[in-house]
Design a protein around this nucleic acid. Structure first.
Length: 515
RNA sequence: GCGGGUGUAGCUUAAUGGUAAAGCUGUAGCCUUCCAAGCUACUGACGAGGGUUCGAUUCCCUUCACCCGCUCCA
């Protein structure tokens, strides 16, 4: 699809202008890949999370919730495989821009004769050099072997050493890019730690290392036994969680789309092995319904059936739900059939049984799991991009202007209703408007505004995405007859149409629309 | 991480090696009987650090952030 950077820029600008999203630490120059949410942003985000929790947990009999800690036991992320796959030494070629990455490979270094890799340890930073052998490997083979070697040489093993892997002696030759053959003598290999780590307690020896979780899912797997034992659930059932996760992204991009600190909405739905593939399709459909119900157009969603080669090795099926952002089609949510990989890993590593006994069939097995994992911030950005609209309105005097309006689904809109006295300098109107405001406040997010001309106040709320406006006017006071007494103008954001509604009917009319 | 681009008020723009200008927005007041009307006043900026200079927003260096392309995205 065509990208539209200008549109994205205007959206970012509106997000700041109206208080949806600010850059973190902005007055100090900003912090790369980290964002704060303002008054409207936090309401929108809360509405999104609340609705997810409602349909995924509260309205279901087969899902319970939990809230795991962000600080994570190192053993958890060793067992899950994150510690290995999230910390890779990587080498860049300055000429062809290829990058070589150690990647999930733990095979013995059978190919050492084919390459030279020289690491110069320097505290935590490393200088690495690679050279393609004279063996005439195909490019793909050569790259794969470089990865294996890089994975084998862990940073902590290379203190102040120059190792010639072929001879086992210290040495050095001119290293070349395996792709284009360029001299890589000056290229650095840096370890990329995609997980944020910290120390627990005052001492900082290696045993005190803990991580900020890179996904919420692991705490669900780790607590599977406890939830199973205390919730009285039987398979199939799910455990849901919404919470922050952290990844030290190499390259944050596209506003809040790829952030280093972000929030996930994850369900781990446990089932018998033979149900996994069916439930994968079931949850895909459930999740598509969800997006429909928050106002994200089906036409802008793409479902990608992730091909075998691109899936994690333990997954027997994965769908990516993608959205057409102004900067391209990007993933909102992954729905993955993860088999029994996670529970098995934790069962093995912890030595604690994480299996399930089916009383009816007398079978004992490690449950399989289907995981719909959605990004809160990404969905939020999709909501904003979807809602953003500019329309040309022509006034009665023939003057045209652009109306910027955020067409949020009322269920998602940060502010549900604006309450306005038609005129500020008529105390009766102001008093009545405050009464109406007080009536609605306990039930929904409202905004009271009496400043300036009424048209200006409407337009301000259009930019905030407030779906309904209520204006208290002279009819409300009974100056146009008793039939109109205690009725107000209800103005719709999208059409700008107006109708009269009795104050007594407001709650029963508005609440279902925003629920 | 590489290459390119951009940083002046909340936004959009202007000017300048010597007190940084305006429109819109915002705030307060007046006015206003339904779509950013009008009047008055006010708030508010050279991303950060260093260098050159009598003096730097302007010239130079560094750095930070954002955007685009590549790369990455378990």
């Amino acid at each position: 699809m065509e990208t539209d950077p200008q549109r994205m820029e205007r959206i970012v600008s509106l997000c700041k202008r109206r208080g949806f999203i600010y850059q973190a630490g902005e007055i100090y120059g900003g912090l790369n890949g980290v964002w704060d949410f303002g008054p409207l942003g936090v309401e929108l985000k809360r509405n999104l999370k609340d609705y997810w929790w409602r349909v995924m947990v509260r309205e279901r009999d087969d899902v319970v919730g939990m809230d795991g800690s962000i600080l994570t036991h190192r053993a958890v992320l060793q067992a899950s495989g994150h510690e290995d796959t999230f910390s890779d030494p990587m080498v860049d070629c300055d000429v062809c821009k290829r990058r070589f990455r150690a990647d999930q490979l733990a095979e013995p270094p059978a190919f050492f004769g084919l390459f030279d890799i020289v690491f110069l340890g320097n505290n935590d930073s490393h200088i690495g050099q690679t050279k393609r052998s004279a063996g005439g490997d195909s490019l793909a083979d050569a790259k794969r072997k470089v990865k294996i070697q890089a994975a084998y040489i862990q940073p902590r093993e290379t203190k102040d050493l120059r190792i010639d892997l072929e001879s086992g002696k210290k040495g050095n030759r001119t290293p070349c890019c395996t792709h284009c053959g360029s001299d890589l003598s000056e290229s650095e290999a840096r370890p990329f730690n995609l997980m944020f780590h910290t120390q627990i307690g005052a001492s900082s020896d290696p045993t005190s290392t803990a991580y900020l979780r890179p996904e919420t899912a692991q705490s669900i797997f780790v607590q599977f036994r406890n939830v199973l034992d205390t919730s009285r659930k039987k398979l199939p059932f799910g455990i849901a969680q919404i919470g922050k996760a952290f990844r030290n992204e190499i390259n944050p991009r596209n506003f809040i789309f790829r952030s280093r600190e972000f929030e996930q909405m994850e369900l781990e739905y446990f089932c018998a092995p033979e149900e996994g593939l069916r439930l994968l399709d079931y949850w895909l459909e459930e999740r598509l319904k969800f997006y429909d119900n928050i106002g994200i157009s089906r036409a802008k969603l793409h479902v990608l059936n992730v091909p075998d080669a691109d899936r994690a090795f333990y997954s027997k099926g994965t769908y990516d739900i993608e959205y057409e952002f102004p900067f391209g089609v990007q993933e909102l949510e992954g729905v993955a059939y993860r088999t029994d990989y996670d529970l098995t890993q934790h069962q093995t590593a912890s030595g604690k049984p994480l299996d399930y006994f089916n009383e009816e069939t007398k079978e004992r097995f490690v449950p399989h799991v289907v995981e719909p994992s959605a990004g809160v911030d990404r969905t939020l950005l999709a909501l904003i991009c979807e809602a953003y609209d500019e329309e040309i309105v022509t006034a009665e005097n023939g003057k045209s202007e652009t109306r910027t309006v955020m067409r949020f689904h009322p269920r998602m809109a940060p502010i549900k209703v604006g309450v306005f006295p038609l005129l500020k300098n008529k105390p009766e109107l102001v008093a009545k408007a405050r009464e109406v405001h007080a009536l609605l406040k306990p039930h929904m997010m409202t905004f009271y505004d009496e400043a300036g001309a009424i048209g200006r106040r409407y337009r301000r709320q259009d930019e905030a995405g407030t779906p309904f406006g209520l204006t208290i006017d002279f009819e409300t006071l009974g100056e146009r007859g008793d039939e109109l007494r205690d009725t107000v103008t209800l103005r719709y954001r999208d059409s700008m149409k107006q109708e009269r509604i009795a104050i007594g009917d407001l709650l029963t009319t508005l609440l279902p629309k925003v629920h």
